[in-house]
C-alpha cells in the first residue's frame, strides 16, 4: 500500500517535470504565433511579452501572403523536394536490393565505397559542384538541387538492411518461373518494401526540405528561392525589426511541416529512431 502510494507520487512528479519542461520547449512556438497575430508588433515587440495580443488581427499574415514570394518559395520547395525524394528513393531501393540479394563481382568493395560516402561532408564538394553545374549552364535552375541527391549512402544502407530480412527463397520461386532480375524485383520484392520505402520517403523529405547551404550557393535568382532561402534572406534584410511580420512568416513556413508531422508522427519518429539505431 505504502509503496504503491510512493510510486503514484513519483509518477505524478515525473509527469509534472516533463510537462513544465515541455511547455518551456514549446515557448518559442507559442510566442511566435502570438506575436504573428499582434497588429502592433512591427515597430517594437510587445513588452512585457504577452500571450494574447492586445489587438488580434491577421494584418501580418495578409502582408506575408500578398507579397507572393512565400507562395512562390513554397512551390519551388515543393518541386525540388518531390523530384529529389523520387530520385533518391528509387535509386536507393535499386542499389539496396542489389547489395542485399545480388551476386556479382566486387559486391563488398562497392558496398564499402557506398558507406564511405557517409563520411564525406558537403563543404569539400561545394566549389567543384558549383563549377561543374556552372560549366553546363545549369546554375540558377532546380537541377543542381535535384541531381546530386541521387546518391545517399544512408538510405542504401537502411534499404539493404531491410531486404536482408526478407527470405531469398522468394526469388528462387520466381526464377524457376523464368522471371528476370528486374521483374523479380518489381513484382516480388518491391511490393513488400512498403515500410522501408515510407521511412526513406520521410527521411529524404526532411533532408531535402531543410537543405540550405547548397541551395544558397547555386540559387542567386530570387524567383527560384526555396522556403529556407527566402526565410534567411528576409531575416538578414530585416534583422530584429518587423517582428510581427517575421513571426507571421515563420509561422506560415513551419505550419505545413508541423501538420504533416502531427499526422505522421508515429512513422516519422520511428524513421528517425531507425536511422539512429541502425546507424550504429
Amino acid at each position: 500500500m505504502d509503496q504503491r502510494m510512493s510510486e503514484r507520487i513519483s509518477n505524478v512528479v515525473k509527469f509534472i517535470v516533463l510537462l513544465v519542461f515541455g511547455i518551456l520547449l514549446m515557448m518559442p512556438f507559442i510566442w511566435m504565433v502570438s506575436v504573428g497575430f499582434d497588429r502592433t508588433a512591427n515597430i517594437t515587440m510587445p513588452f512585457p511579452p504577452r500571450l494574447i495580443p492586445e489587438t488580434i488581427s491577421n494584418f501580418n499574415y495578409g502582408i506575408v501572403f500578398e507579397n507572393g514570394r512565400l507562395i512562390q518559395s513554397y512551390i519551388n520547395s515543393g518541386i525540388v523536394t518531390t523530384c529529389s525524394v523520387f530520385l533518391q528513393v528509387s535509386a536507393s531501393l535499386l542499389a539496396g536490393y542489389a547489395f542485399s540479394k545480388g551476386t556479382f563481382k566486387y559486391k563488398r568493395l562497392l558496398f564499402v565505397l557506398v558507406l564511405c560516402t557517409l563520411m564525406i561532408p558537403m563543404e569539400p564538394r561545394l566549389i567543384p559542384l558549383y563549377t561543374l553545374f556552372n560549366s553546363v549552364g545549369l546554375l540558377n535552375s532546380f537541377w543542381p538541387l535535384i541531381l546530386p541527391t541521387v546518391i545517399n549512402g544512408m538510405l542504401i544502407f537502411l534499404c539493404k538492411q531491410f531486404f536482408d530480412q526478407l527470405p531469398g527463397t522468394l526469388r528462387e520461386a520466381a526464377q524457376i518461373d523464368g522471371a528476370g532480375e528486374f521483374r523479380i524485383f518489381f513484382t516480388v520484392y518491391l511490393p513488400l518494401a512498403g515500410p522501408i520505402a515510407a521511412t526513406m520517403v520521410i527521411l529524404s523529405f526532411i533532408w531535402s526540405w531543410n537543405d540550405f547551404m547548397w541551395p544558397l550557393v547555386v540559387l542567386n535568382n530570387q524567383d527560384l528561392h526555396t522556403v529556407p532561402l527566402y526565410l534567411a534572406s528576409f531575416s538578414l534584410e530585416n534583422g530584429t525589426s518587423l517582428g510581427g511580420l517575421t513571426m507571421a512568416l515563420a509561422t506560415v513556413s513551419i505550419l505545413p511541416i508541423v501538420v504533416l508531422y502531427l499526422f505522421l508522427q508515429r512513422y516519422i519518429i520511428q524513421s528517425i529512431a531507425l536511422s539512429g539505431v541502425k546507424g550504429e
Partner: peptide
C-alpha cells in the same frame, strides 16, 4: 521532438526575437 522537425533556419529566425 517538435523543435527538431522545424527547419533550423526558421528556428534561428524565431530565436533572434526570443
Amino acid at each position: 521532438f517538435l523543435p527538431n522537425v522545424t527547419s533550423i533556419v526558421a528556428a534561428a529566425m524565431i530565436f533572434q526575437f526570443v
